[in-house]
């Protein structure tokens, strides 16, 4: 499925961009939170991830914190964002 391929791509992007040295794609549960709980990312990671989305998919996030919170909730919501807004 396309979504699964995209999810896997995003997992690899997260691991590489955020230098998660002890994490493998299998460790990232698509339904678990990415931030604070679950994977345990922090606010610097959020900025870094926003930059990676911009560089790779041409997606610029709104400065609206609530919508970013929804997009970054878990891997599935992130994949939905990329699916809907990717430039290429």
């Amino acid at each position: 499925m396309t979504t699964t391929a995209l999810e896997h791509e995003l997992k690899e992007m997260i691991i590489e961009t955020l230098e998660l040295e002890d994490v493998t794609p299998a460790d990232i549960d698509p339904d678990e939170p990415l931030f604070v709980e679950g994977l345990g990312l922090d606010s610097i990671d959020a900025l870094e991830l926003g930059l990676a989305l911009q560089k790779r998919y041409g997606i610029t996030l709104e400065s609206d914190a609530e919508s970013s919170r929804q997009h970054f909730a878990n891997l599935r919501s992130l994949a939905a964002l990329v699916e809907a807004r990717r430039a290429n």
Binding site: E19, I44, D45, L47, E48, L51, K55
Partner: peptide, 8 residues
């Protein structure tokens, strides 16, 4: 290179 800076 005109690239955005990495926050981390």
């Amino acid at each position: 290179a005109g690239e955005p800076l990495s926050p981390a």
